[in-house]
Amino acid sequence: MSYFSDIYKGIKTLLTGMSVTGKYFLNSRKGAITQQYPDNRDSLKMFDRFRGEVVMPHDENNEHRCTGCQKCELACPNGSIEIIWDRKVDPETGKKKKMIEKHIYHLGMCTMCGLCIEACPTDAIKWAQNFENSVYDRSYLTRVLNKPGSRLKPGVEE
């Protein structure tokens, strides 16, 4: 008799399984968990802390906060940050001061660990939420973060 009860129980478990999927099938109109990605670009907002790429914010006077201390360059595990700097004369004080020429960021080598941003004493670099980073040529992934002609914001000291 256990032969028939096995069959009965087996079919019962199969039907309970089907009831689960069936329930989702009937509710499929409202239940889709996928996103229509390129279509929902306008409404798609990443979280504030999302690590997309490293950027250096500039204010309206084209001034940034990077003093060229190179702490980010040291903190980076992969060597994705290179800082080219020079000692130049500060036009306001007239003294020689360390200033960046180029803050080079290799996005292609970056593992988004966030150590550079942790290390920065002046909050000169931060995360941007842009995640569409694909390019056709990998040389585009090497970026100069400070804008041309930009300079250190006065008052920012290491």
Binding site: M46, F47, F50
Partner: peptide, 9 residues
């Protein structure tokens, strides 16, 4: 993602 900034790593 909201707290740590990344989903996996």
């Amino acid at each position: 993602e909201e707290t740590c900034g990344a989903r996996l790593t």
